[in-house]
Design a protein around this nucleic acid. Sequence first.
DNA 1: GGTTAGCACTCGATATCCTTGACTGCCAAC
DNA 2: GTTGGCAGTCAAGGATATCGAGTGCTAACC
Lengths: 331, 331
Amino acid sequence: MLDDRKAAILSAVVQEYISTAQPVGSSHIAAASGIGVSSATVRNEMAVLEQEGYLAQPHTSAGRIPTDKGYRFFVDHLATPRVSVDSAVTRQVGDFFAAAHGRLEEMLHQTSDLLTRLTNNAAVVVGPKAEASTIRGAQIVRLSATAATVVVVLGNGTVENEMIELDEAVTDLAINTASAHLASALAGSTLAAAQVASSGDESVDALCVAAVAAARGTAADDHVYVGGASTVAQAFDAVEVVRQVLHTLEQQFVVVSLVRDIVDRGMSVAIGIEHGVEPLSACSVVVAPVVVDGEHLGSVGVLGPTRMNYPQALATVDIVSERLGRRLGEG
Amino acid sequence: MLDDRKAAILSAVVQEYISTAQPVGSSHIAAASGIGVSSATVRNEMAVLEQEGYLAQPHTSAGRIPTDKGYRFFVDHLATPRVSVDSAVTRQVGDFFAAAHGRLEEMLHQTSDLLTRLTNNAAVVVGPKAEASTIRGAQIVRLSATAATVVVVLGNGTVENEMIELDEAVTDLAINTASAHLASALAGSTLAAAQVASSGDESVDALCVAAVAAARGTAADDHVYVGGASTVAQAFDAVEVVRQVLHTLEQQFVVVSLVRDIVDRGMSVAIGIEHGVEPLSACSVVVAPVVVDGEHLGSVGVLGPTRMNYPQALATVDIVSERLGRRLGEG
DNA sequence: GGTTAGCACTCGATATCCTTGACTGCCAAC
DNA sequence: GTTGGCAGTCAAGGATATCGAGTGCTAACC
């Protein structure tokens, strides 16, 4: 643990570096209000902070920049209380969700854009998995002689669909019977628990089984919306880093498991390599779960360089996740 | 029009520049097989080509690079016949579509990844609009006291859905009646032509009207899949250009209208500012329509720097669009 | 006439050197 | 423990020279 003065110095270095992206020297810190001490003393303290791994020096005659450990300490102990949300931001988020309507997918997509606008970072919104949502409707529709589609409407308004192949020439009657049977069997259940009792007719049962299997398959799919990828072009000056980060963001399952993993570990910030995704080791991720009625339905997060504005990101992600959860609760 | 030798020189410059991204000098061209002429002569010709606007010189003592006009001439008159598809590519595309199955959305998404892999450029796939597809099924499902969702299953296997708000407390019976009425009224029609005759019951009719309106709304939505955005990070060295291009690619409606516009004008390549989208003026777009049974259902395209490999891009986009069309034709 | 060799010239790129200035670390004095 | 002062370090920036790729022009050539 660091004494008060070291903490104050570390805090000042982090904040200065976040806003300038330049290594910060002892005299800047000494001049900064709040630390009534000469630059020489600051230097001594910084040397200790470097030894202990909180700061690093790009080269001898340069100032210090925070290490991942430094950011971690800042986030855990020094970041100004979360209350710090700008009231303008609160209003903006409020307005956004007040105006939001229509399809859930659309809203989640726009939420990621909102986060990008507010934080100027890439944003991720992971929507609720289908499996836990109650089923409101189900239907099987023939597409061709050998193909049909099963459609499931869920309580949160999302619609999942998947194709099924019809092995032999199934009659329209069988499809319609199966569709009705399916609808009544699944209504009120969830995709995870979906089960269909035998109807007595063999071909209808086969259809139902196939449909449930197909629907179950979609339940595991994640709904993820990544926005603001263009912001990473400015965040790093090494082209190769930009390429790697963008490429990683394109792989949605990586993003989802990254976010889910952080949330599951009860963390709200993953700094640098903490999240374990090597190509994103120059990035930090700030996340918050979206909770509705005590249930964790999804997550929102922002992704930016490790020198991102953590207090702002934390506050923004928090308020957005909270409002989004409230909005989802209303239906 | 250019004489044969000028054309050959222009072609050589374009090809060399495409592969090296460096200004190309007269001696390189003179050394290149096919032009049995000294560098001095090439210089004379290049001076003329520059005067006529086909080439440009970054600075006095540098080689020449093609202008947009130069690329245009190359594409129109010099690009090796389209036949040039690598047989390995043909096989790869064939394999891809042979293995493709499941949801149409999924397949289109993967198609954009395929194009990215094959050309190493950003790729765009614009899927069929819903409005022209025949309706196979329709349903209204209650979500809450004041909300319901209308689901429409289309012949191509896609499923459109939109929420409708229920003004007053509509009975379940009314919803079910309307749902059934809607299903029988819309089956076989298209979203564009969707119409519902009166059922006799006022509240049912109101529901049907709202449902059709909502469904119609979704019909105008475009389905667009953009992949390979990370490739643009390497394509340009100016960060600002990268940011602009990425930002533009994130605005899907811009991309759609860009691609649609080019296809509608009967073009297959838009070079530089030809497409009129200012932030993409450093990019070229190569597109091909996806045609099924003579009908233009969508488009595929790649987007890269103006110094992209046009023959390869043209060939790849052509074969992918053709195979995709064939695949969609099979259902 | 078109083609070519040759030459002077241009100018970005690269290298070298120097200066500057923003740092640090250390030490002696407070 | 704190501080002022000073020597040392090193990247960044500027000036200068060199290099070399490439040009345009001209005179000779076929």
